[in-house]
Each structure stands twice: as C-alpha cells, then as structure tokens.
Design a protein around this nucleic acid. Structure first.
Lengths: 205, 205
DNA sequence: GCAAATTAATGATTTATTCAAG
DNA sequence: CTTGAATAAATCATTAATTTGC
C-alpha cells in the first residue's frame, strides 16, 4: 500500500525525479531552509514532509558513497586483469565500446599495429601511460603536473611496491611557454610528455 | 587560429564528438588512466594532451551543473513568488546570497526590529526562515529535530554570538506517529512547524 | 561582403569546500 | 580535531560567433 495507511513516505515518481535532479545539481546536504523550500515545492505533487526530504538526501548521499566505494574496491581488486589499452571496457565505458549501436565506429576496433605504434612511441621518448598499472594524477602546489606511476609488476603474491612520481606536465610560469612551443612539432604523439631522466625527481618521500 | 601558434587547445569536431559521447555515457570525472586512454584515442584525430582532456571534463561537468542549477532556481523562484520562503541559500547557491550584487533586493538585508518580529512569530507558532541570518538544521543524538538559529545581529565588529537551538520537529518515538497523523491535513503548509512555546527547550548549553 | 568591435563559449588556473583517514 | 587528497566553484584568459557600420 502506497499512500493510505502506509507508515512511511512513498515518493511519487515526479517527486523522486525532482529530488534526483536537485541532488545532481549539487544539493547533497540541504539546510533547513532548503528542506522547507523543497518540501513546499514537492508537496504540490503529493504528501511529503520535511523529514522525508531530509532523510532522502541523507540516504541518497550515503548510498552514493557506498556504491562509489564498492566500485573502487572492485576496481582495485580487478585492476590487474585490465591491461594496456583494454580499459575502455570499464563500467563507464562498457556501452561506449565498439558495440555501441548508436555510434558503432566511434571507437574503431584496435587493430594489429596500433599497439606496436604505441610501443614505438614509448621507445621514442614519449611516455605511454597505458603500460602502467596504477596511475594517479595530481597537481602540486607550484602548479606542476605530477603523475604517480606504479612501476612495479602486478603483485601476484607479494606486496605492491611504493609509487614513483614522474613529472608529467611542468607548467610553472617559467617553462610554460617554452613547453608549449616545443609541443608544436610533436603534435602527433598523444602522450607527449617528453620526460627526460633529469626531469624525474631523484627520490620521493 | 586554431592549431599553429595557438596558446590553447582547440578540439577538432571529431574529438569534441567523442568527448561528448563519453560524457553522455557516464564519464564525468575520468581518472588518470582513463584520461590517458582517452587522450591516446583522440590523438588520432588531432593534437591533444592529457590536461586538455582533464580540463574538458571538469569544465563540461561544471557547466552542465551550472545550467541545471540555473534552471532549477528559476523554476523554484518562479513557482514560489507568492510564497513566504523564496530563497535557496545553500553553499551551492552561495552567489545568490543577500550580498549578491546581481539581485540585491531579492534577499533584503536584515533590519532593526526584524529579529524582534521573528521572536514574536516564534511565540505565535509560525517561523519564518527568510528573516534569519544563518540557519542550520541538525538531528540530535536522540533523533530529535533541532534547528540552529542565529539570533544575533550581523557581526559588525564583534564576534558572532553563539547559536541558539530551537527544537523544530520533535520526532521522538512517542510523538512521531501523532505528528505524522496531524500532518495529514497541513500537507500544503510547508513550514508547518507549529512550535508551541512549551516545545522550546528552556535553555541550551 | 568584410573587418573592427562586441559578446558568448570555453579552455586553463586558482581558490574554496568536502570528505574521510590518522 | 587536524590534515591531506579530491573535487567543485569561481575566476581568468583566449578563441569563436555575432553584430555593426561602412
């Protein structure tokens, strides 16, 4: 039983829609005024109280986080199975893949030679990240781009080695321009980092 | 000028198409691996770097939300012109505050006497939130609804006075049901707090 | 038609906020 | 409670659209 005699609030589809839209729009922990505002708004579409709105947002945020956490841990667990250029089949990418009926040729099937090309570019001094297992991008205080690169082999049994940090996009004011100018002729190397050994910090804490 | 001598990346139509498709497919905050993957893919269609991809998704997501928010606030404000509570001041809506130069008279500055008026209305059983400066809702440990109300004047020089707490929605197990049942016929009065003086705690730590 | 001028989009940075681990 | 990492919001800056006067 939905409305009559029910002991708990049951949002109408319209109410749910609006709540979700608000959530997506950035309202995750509405304050009292907002709750009242929203309640007032939604009461047009059915019975609702402030506490329902409050609880809805609380639960929605919590469950969103829960989902995210689970997804993340799953990713971390199964990461080692995803190699090189094959991670376009991540959950987010799944329906984007070559089998996407909407745009089947948007992502052409990888063909022989392409990966070799990538490998060549690595040898050539450009850095391909598709050979790293675990990569995290961050921006340091000085506006330099750093990339945390896990350079160890997949941990079969033993523990994962510590991360190394490679400077990826040095963007300090001083070398931004020259970097840019230098880039004009490697426009075809997609991951054009041009990491020279002296750019790599000697060691990291 | 698009590619040569340009100071910033200019996506080709194809690149843009693919980025948008990815976004629509659920990628809104790609991680480093995804960024590199995407960069690698898109580099087939023109010059591109990881940071371009990173920025593109950031901006696209932000501006999507911005649009949504604007639409929402327009909706809410339009539909609530005739109501008491016509504002929406969350962190997300920060730029809509009283001091917003864009709409200075939407949120009138608190004036002398207003707080007294507010106090009267509290006594009267109705509470208007648009006269409070700062309101925060919280739920105490015992599942009671509390509302933190800043009753002090705007901090001119001195420090903001401590918050006072008013019980807003008493939701203890004992009176939850009756509260709910009572609400069946005031479902259209959004701010139905009906605070009676004896509901207000005499004093708070 | 066509540039100079103006406005709108959007790439790139910086600043503030949130969240959770220690 | 403090702090670091991550993210979102706000802002700056440049490019593309467009308007306008000729």
């Amino acid at each position: 039983m939905s409305p009559a005699g029910s002991t708990r609030w049951c949002p109408t589809p319209h109410q749910l829609m609006m709540l979700e839209e608000m959530y997506r729009s950035g309202i995750s922990t509405p304050n009292a005024s907002q709750i009242q505002q929203i309640t007032s708004q939604l009461s047009f579409y059915g019975k609702i109280e402030g506490k329902n709105v409050f609880y809805w947002f609380q639960n929605h945020k919590a469950r969103d986080r829960q989902k995210l956490r689970k997804k993340l841990t799953r990713q971390l667990q199964h990461q080692h199975q995803h190699q090189l250029l094959h991670y376009f089949d991540s959950p987010a990418f799944r329906h984007l893949s070559c089998h996407n009926s909407a745009s089947p040729n948007l992502f052409p099937q990888p063909q022989a030679g392409i990966h070799n090309e990538a490998a060549k570019q690595v040898m050539n001094g450009t850095w391909k990240f598709d050979i790293t297992e675990r990569v995290d991008m961050m921006r340091t205080y000085g506006s330099d781009w750093l990339m945390m690169v896990d350079v160890g082999p997949p941990p079969l049994i033993s523990r994962r080695p510590p991360l190394k940090t490679l400077e990826l996009f040095p963007l300090t004011a001083s070398n931004l321009k020259e970097k840019f100018n230098d880039n004009t002729n490697n426009s075809l190397s997609p991951v054009s980092c041009n990491i020279s050994p002296d750019k790599v910090p000697p060691s990291l804490p």
